[in-house]
């Protein structure tokens, strides 16, 4: 297929000038919104996502209550101006509900829900701009927002996507690469224990090529983990300093 040549040049450079195993530039910040218990904003390349967390709080529906743990409710939506062609999509779009369910299942394993029986934790994801990798960016944003909200989790959940172009695994696909029949794999791992939270693949990938692609994705997740850890430690130190200043007054 001619797309192979376009995506990976003979020198090993991709369309945006990255090497095959290079992540896009990551920028993130927590505590950006006032009303929410926890919020985070993350930029991976040109994909921008805001995650807001409310909770634990009283469940909105009685039937969403579990007697021994908290229930997690996720809502996912894409801004109308996020893609190059304006498309108004309702919140009840099946694709969005599917992505919301994937995120929900990811965090049900990571968040220590047994601490808050009969309550609900809400995670709202809003995508402001899409350039491929909406799912893994949302998972990363949700992790940061949950930490910002102070909800106890076993570990960070870091997600990354990887694909395969003519036997070369590539990391962190952008929009053009995702849509060009490239087999894509999105993986969410908990870095310290190495456990896999989520594994999503909707395309054909040969079993022989699966392992290198998977390993590349996991290494991408570990890189992201160190970035996120830095950001969280910095913002927490700032917060601690401010509390100590207040106490001195």
């Amino acid at each position: 297929m001619s797309s192979g040549l376009d995506l990976l040049s003979p020198e090993g450079l991709r369309i945006d000038g990255r090497r095959a195993n290079e992540l896009r530039r990551v920028n993130c910040k927590t505590g950006i919104l006032v009303q929410a218990d926890g919020s985070a904003y993350i930029e991976q390349g040109n994909t921008k996502c805001i995650a807001t967390v409310y909770g634990p709080r009283e469940p909105s529906h009685k039937n969403l209550q579990y007697h021994d743990r908290a229930s997690i409710n996720v809502e996912y939506s894409i801004a109308t101006f996020s893609t190059s062609e304006r498309k108004q999509r309702s919140k009840m779009d099946r694709r969005f509900i599917e992505i919301a369910n994937i995120v929900k299942q990811t965090f049900e394993t990571a968040v220590i829900t047994s601490l808050y029986p009969r309550s609900q934790i809400d995670i709202y994801l809003q995508i402001l701009q899409i350039d491929g990798g909406a799912l893994h960016t949302s998972i990363n944003a949700a992790t940061l927002a949950l930490i910002d909200a102070g909800i106890p989790m076993k570990e960070y959940v870091c997600a990354c996507s990887a694909g395969c172009v003519e036997d070369t695994p590539i990391l962190d696909l952008n929009y053009f690469e995702e849509n060009n029949f490239t087999p894509t794999l999105t993986v969410a791992v908990m870095p310290n224990s190495g456990k896999i939270s989520t594994l999503v693949s909707e395309s054909r990938l040969h079993l022989d090529k699966f392992e290198p692609v998977f390993n590349l994705a996991v290494s991408g997740c570990k890189q992201l983990h160190s970035v996120f850890d830095d950001v969280i430690r910095k913002s927490t130190t700032e917060l601690a300093n401010r509390v100590m200043e207040k106490q001195k007054e």
Binding site: L33, Q35, A36, S39, I50, T52, Y54, S60, E75, S77, A79, T80, Q88, K91, D122, Y124, Q126
Partner: peptide
Amino acid sequence: CSVECSPSASRDFEG
């Protein structure tokens, strides 16, 4: 024009 209130703004805007 179309306005969308994201649930991150207020709990009332959920669903």
